[in-house]
Write a protein that binds this DNA or RNA. Structure first.
Lengths: 244, 244
DNA sequence: CGTCTACTTGAGGGCGCTCAAGACGAGTGG
DNA sequence: CCACTCGTCTTGAGCGCCCTCAAGTAGACG
């Protein structure tokens, strides 16, 4: 029972609502099927109909769509505590694919169990809807990022957001964070070419704004970065449970 | 009671779940506060904390974010039957603004009423979560559109999607639809300049692909458009209620 | 008949693209 | 231990999409 209270997913939900023992028990029930996946092997194929979603407990994943011409758009990255494929359960078809960036551990959640959990504890449904809303807010911010900012601001905003999310689950700080992503991941996420990402990263490094090297991101001048990226972390943050 | 069954919102939800008389009654309760707004006057200001959401019953709205430098990114357009500001109710802060494109009619829904409706009928909560998921799928598609397609494909995809959505609520067909948007709206939605939108529209017209004139969009060669836009309407479509 | 909004067209330039080539480290097998 | 491969990162050259600036047209409305 203490086990479930320590999972990143529970910690995240606990930020939205104060979970009752009954609700923790329901969550415990959902956490039965633990599974591992190797880096690079897709969890859910685009267009495929799936009955299961996953809750990520360890490692990084990206969700993306592939076009016919081979170009890829990464929608979002998932870090521990994040839901994978909630929409594929609700809509019965997955409209994008998931690729583990690193080796990962995840919990499989069947659609039926999820719906049952929802009717048992409506407040849990609220909490999950809440988490999903935060995720959508991030996609929206991502949209603004790609639609209206130049490459430097895009990279700065993306890395600041990632840092803030990681800090919330204890995997980073204002100074920086460990990051397993390649420059190709960044390019596919930001709608740029990998070559241009490389050049812009060099520029940011030379301007003493941020350094991305050897799998680690360091914010050399966080204040200035926040400024050029117009980064506002309000949409990620909140003060304690909003439902009691 | 028949009234509520004919609203675009109910029609949309009825596509996801078969609504029971009790659930229709709960929906009826939500539809008490009917309000009108004039074109151009914002409903919800960015960053402002709001207690209410709206269900659009007539007219067009766009949701957007403004940057400090004045550039605007339109996230999505809402047409009759769509929810406005569901996230602002759940997260207690609105992370973007809503501007009526035309004069509109909407129903105000208070946060408390919504939560109460959810606990009374968990299946209604599911249906709304479902509708929200479809909306998010559209934002994701929008992201791919802006991140990975050139201006011509962007415009084609955007207008095809809009046409498909409107057709679902009886406001358009495969041939075309009435569209109150300006070229500035298109530019702000697609991450382009209005000038370039104009040039690309001319190109599409000269290539006999589509015509956007006098508030009306005509698909001159829908097949070819679907091809160059890689448009797949599966994520908008579904076959009848998925929950019984 | 002036004003305002939306649309249209031209000229020139820059951001980020593609193509091409090379450096560097990690893993693999001879 | 070294050659080979492969993934990732790096840098240069040249070009094109889409930008900005500038100017002008057409229709709506007072």
């Amino acid at each position: 029972m203490n086990d479930i209270q320590d999972s990143p997913f529970t910690r995240k939900l606990a930020g939205y609502v104060t979970l009752s023992p009954v609700e923790l028990e329901v969550l415990e029930q959902l956490h039965k099927r633990r599974r591992s996946f190797a880096a690079g092997r897709d969890l859910v194929q685009q267009g495929q109909s799936e009955q299961a979603a996953y809750i990520l407990s360890e490692g990084w994943v990206c969700s993306y769509k592939i076009q016919q011409d081979g170009t890829r758009q990464i929608i979002d990255f998932q870090i521990p505590g994040d839901f994978l494929g909630l929409r594929s359960v609700l809509l019965r078809t997955s409209d994008h694919s998931f690729e583990p960036v690193t080796n990962i551990q995840a919990v499989e959640v069947l659609a039926g169990d999820l719906f049952q959990a929802f009717s048992q504890t409506p407040r849990l449904a609220n909490a999950i809807l809440w988490a999903a809303s935060r995720d959508e807010a991030m996609v929206v911010e991502h949209l603004v990022n790609i639609g209206r900012r130049d490459a430097g601001a895009r990279l700065a905003h993306f890395l600041l957001e990632l840092g803030a999310r990681l800090a919330l689950v204890g995997m980073g700080s204002r100074a920086g964070f460990d990051c397993p992503l390649t420059q190709y991941h960044l390019a596919d996420a930001l709608g740029l070419s990998a070559i241009h990402v490389n050049r812009v990263l060099r520029q940011l490094r030379e301007d003493r704004l941020l350094t991305f090297r050897n799998g680690h991101v360091t914010f050399d001048n966080r204040l200035r970065l926040v400024e050029i990226a117009e980064f506002d972390e309000a949409y990620l943050d909140h003060e304690g449970p909003l439902l009691k």
